[in-house]
């Protein structure tokens, strides 16, 4: 009944409401997609698919915070992209080839050396997060980068809060160990 995209009609401001509620979360959705998927264009496609699906099902959204609802749809879209493959893979891409945004972390007063050091450690951290197994990677991204509560993470990954807690504890342990190993190789400051 709705070929192609979402719909060609708009019943009394549905689009306006949807945009006002959903579009402010674009960067957070994109961040999760980038960490879950191997390429930038796959991330673009998954996020677009997520918004179109969310719009189609917006009538079934029963209030509450919209962010976890959207992230759950995105996560399913990412899994669909990689249906058939064993698990979501991630290839590190550095901030250097990002090209779309200035480095947020160059704070006033940084010397050029500090700036390089910070960029270096950010690249390392991104890579290390990307190397975590998908089920640990997603809780790290949702908690540390997207700042979700445990309850919201539980909604997104469709698991009990107890699972969120134990995964996060393992994920942080793994990430910290990888970070220390990288430090040992002289990679991180």
């Amino acid at each position: 009944m709705m070929a192609g995209g979402a719909a060609d009609w708009d019943d009394g401001g549905k689009t306006a409401r949807f945009k006002a509620l959903a579009l402010p979360h674009l960067d957070e959705l994109y961040t999760l997609a980038r960490y879950l998927l191997r390429s930038r264009s796959d991330a673009d496609d998954a996020v677009q698919e997520c918004y179109l699906r969310a719009f189609r099902h917006f009538d079934t959204f029963r209030g509450g915070p919209i962010k976890p609802w959207l992230l759950a749809i995105l996560r399913n879209a990412c899994h669909a992209t990689y249906a058939g493959s064993a698990r979501l893979v991630y290839t590190a891409d550095s901030a250097a080839d990002d090209g779309v945004r200035p480095p947020l972390w160059s704070e006033a007063g940084d010397s050029p050396e500090q700036t390089i050091l910070r960029r270096h450690s950010t690249d390392t951290m991104r890579r290390l997060i990307g190397e975590l197994p998908a089920e640990f990677r997603e809780v790290i991204v949702l908690r540390e980068i997207n700042d979700l509560s445990y309850r919201d993470i539980a909604t997104v990954i469709e698991a009990p809060i107890g699972t969120v807690m134990s995964r996060l504890s393992r994920a942080r342990t793994m990430l910290r160990e990888a970070w220390i190993a990288a430090e040992g190789e002289g990679e991180a400051p």
Partner: peptide, 26 residues
């Protein structure tokens, strides 16, 4: 960890693509 630096900003073209696919608001 510096979460702000670990975020990815969605490209403007993606936002435009999504807005273009949604029906026009009335």
């Amino acid at each position: 960890m510096n979460p702000a630096a670990l975020r990815h900003a969605a490209p403007a073209s993606l936002r435009a693509r999504i807005e273009g696919k949604l029906p026009a608001p009335q």
